[in-house]
Design a protein around this nucleic acid. Structure first.
Length: 618
DNA sequence: GGGACAAGT
DNA sequence: ATGGGACTTGTCCCA
């Protein structure tokens, strides 16, 4: 059991580990506050500690619907207290304590705490310390950041061992059928969080991520909570009409496909499809997957030259995907209380530092094709409002220019030239007038490839040229943008030496694959090493912008709401009368973020306005 | 629960 | 002989 990695934790562990063999909660006094006097006594001592850990007792509902039933509070001198929330009131001393702007508020996953408290009419003040986000910054590669795993790994403390039983579902009302184990759990959780904070803070400081944590990730938490709570209005009628239309269309296609295949089969089953294509029709397999022959888009596109069926399958797949994932699924997720879609924006999932969106994922709403665009038409502004979309133009190539300091690339952005045309000029060595659409498209793919960690194979697959041809493009690119090659080499070398990459704000990503003896794994590691600082710095940037924009909107245009982030794009819902001001504010604040962070290139933000997301998309 | 596939940036 | 430009989430199939 790797309990004591470092000696300095030994004293801490002694106080934490159960002294007897009997499983029990952390050695803290748990006291339930049931009156104002008790609340006052706790609040007075807590206010002097500087740190308050909070664990909420919530009802069955989650996210923006979560109802606060009780609070477990723990301070650095070891006291843990259960504050009782009766309906919408909490004892005044505790209320003040939570509002106290000098007291750090800690929790493992603060966003739901913030949401539940706000919903309960409680104000949460002071700086935040989210231990989940702290461990994410310490290692964004790990797949889960549960308090159980963190408590064990950092403190050697076994959380929850004693509570496995009897901790089933939360009751509808905490005090009708009070489950003592829930109180205990919450108190224990808060106590563990208190112990974690100084250790994690020290580690963040050590690795140079403390400012990123305190000045970006923590201030972002309430911004994300607000986005989640704001939600996105959905015109369900648009999707319901589409669903019927798609159903007819898909039925037709099933018939056609059945005829072409010489019998009905489950088109959604890649296995059955492979049997039809390769056994029944005798088409030539292109490549294999782990389990059989591949039937992915690339394969079917190639097969389409030999038979009519693959093209039909491709069409069927597109429509079927849109119907099941969006058209039929989204209306089900409209919140009955608000009539809107409320995503969860996750801050501790993506290894690069990006946010992710789930339940529903609003970061992969279709944007291509007739039906795709019609789905976007269902995302609308509330009556009297319009949508405002603000999109960073070419953020990743700009960051590439900044990180590489390649003079030619810097110049492209300083002069406000079109990056892809400029790239085409360089790799094809032609003057701008002679650059065709095809050449620009190829150049665009090369730039993407560079950002993702290029290989001739990948590029050739992507633009449909030979590997030799692709290699020529890459060589030409690196010849003309020598600073970019130098950056790639430097980044990979540094990542190999240090074991991790960093972004402009000191966000780290360990890349253990670089130490692998397997060349494929190493290649994978090298591409990650190239991509992570770019994708991660872009994530840093938009996070800072979100905080700045949110602050100014609160001060100047409180009716304009941020309702979504999609990696390089922010979406707002604004009253029509505020539109011009909102446009100005958003654009200038987003562009100013580049200057604020010392970027060597200007940032450009494109704006789009409309009644729905299709119209508003720049 | 994992694999294949497909939607976005 | 063949396969790898990055990062996600959701749906469906199938063991």
């Amino acid at each position: 059991m790797p309990l004591l990695k470092e000696l300095e934790f030994s004293t801490l562990l002694k106080t934490l580990l159960p002294t007897s063999t009997e499983e029990q909660a952390i050695g803290v006094d748990v006291e339930t506050i049931r009156d104002e006097t008790g609340a006052r006594r706790f609040a007075d001592q807590a206010a002097r500690q500087g740190l308050l850990a909070i664990q909420c007792l919530l009802g069955e509902a989650t996210g923006i619907n979560a109802k606060l039933q009780g609070l477990a509070l723990s301070t650095s001198n070891g006291q843990t207290v259960l504050g009782v929330v009766e309906g919408r009131t909490l004892f005044n001393p505790l209320r003040e304590l939570l509002r106290n702007p000098t007291l750090i508020k800690a929790a493992h996953d603060l966003k739901p705490v913030w949401l539940a408290m706000q919903r309960a009419g409680l104000e949460l003040g002071g700086p935040g310390f989210d231990t989940m986000i702290a461990t994410y910054l310490l290692n964004p590669n790990r797949r889960g950041h549960t308090l159980e795993s963190v408590a064990f790994e950092v403190l050697g403390y076994r959380l929850g061992a004693h509570q496995a039983a009897g901790s089933a579902k939360p009751p509808k009302d905490l005090f009708e059928q009070a489950d003592p184990s829930r109180f205990k759990q919450a108190a224990e959780t808060a106590a563990v969080v208190v112990k974690l904070v100084p250790v994690l803070k020290e580690r963040l400081e050590e690795q140079g991520s403390l400012r990123l944590f305190e000045e970006v990730e923590m201030p972002l938490v309430p911004v994300l909570a607000e986005i989640e709570r704001n939600g996105f209005a959905l015109d369900v009628r648009v999707l319901e009409a589409m669903s019927k239309e798609l159903e007819r269309e898909l039925d037709r296609m099933i018939e056609t496909i059945g005829r072409l295949a010489g019998g009905e089969f489950n088109i959604n089953s890649p296995k059955q499809l492979a049997t039809v294509l390769f056994d029944k029709l005798g088409l030539k397999p292109i490549r294999k997957t782990k389990t059989g022959y591949s039937t992915d888009e690339d394969t079917l596109t190639q097969l389409a030259t030999q038979h009519e069926l693959p093209a039909q399958i491709l069409n069927y797949r597109t429509l079927s995907k849109l119907k099941s994932t969006y058209v039929d699924a989204l209306p089900e997720l409209v919140n009955p209380e608000t009539g809107r879609l409320h995503t969860s924006l996750n801050q501790t999932v993506a290894a690069t530092g990006r946010l992710s969106s789930a339940d529903p994922n609003l970061q992969n709403i279709p944007v291509k094709g007739e039906y795709g665009l019609r789905i976007r038409e269902a995302f609308v502004a509330a009556p009297g409002h319009t949508l405002l979309c603000a999109d960073y133009s070419q953020i990743e190539p700009r960051i590439l220019a900044h990180l590489s300091q390649d003079e030619r690339l810097l110049r492209v952005f300083e002069r406000g030239e079109d990056i892809h045309t400029a790239t085409a000029v360089e790799i094809f060595k032609l003057s701008p007038e002679l650059i065709t659409k095809e050449m620009r498209r190829a150049a665009k793919t090369v730039v993407f490839g560079i950002v993702y960690g290029i290989s001739p194979f990948g590029l050739s697959q992507n633009i449909g040229v030979s590997q030799q041809e692709a290699k020529k493009y890459i060589d030409a690119y690196f010849e003309r943008y020598a600073g970019v090659r130098a950056l790639m080499d430097r980044t990979i070398a540094e990542a190999k030496e240090k074991g991790y990459t960093t972004t402009i704000l000191g966000r780290r990503r360990p890349i253990p694959e670089l130490q692998s003896s397997d060349p494929t794994q190493r290649g994978f590691g090298e591409r990650m090493a190239v991509n992570s600082p770019i994708q991660g710095s872009a994530a840093d940037l938009i996070k800072v912008a979100m905080i700045a924009v949110s602050k100014r909107l609160h001060e100047e245009l409180p009716s304009t709401k941020m309702i979504l982030q999609v990696h390089d794009e922010l979406i707002f819902e604004t009253p029509e009368k505020d539109l011009e001001k909102a446009k100005q504010l958003v654009k200038s604040e987003m562009e100013a973020t580049g200057t604020k962070l010392g970027l060597s290139v200007p940032l450009k933000v494109d704006l789009g306005v409309g009644r729905n997301w299709r119209e508003a998309h720049p």
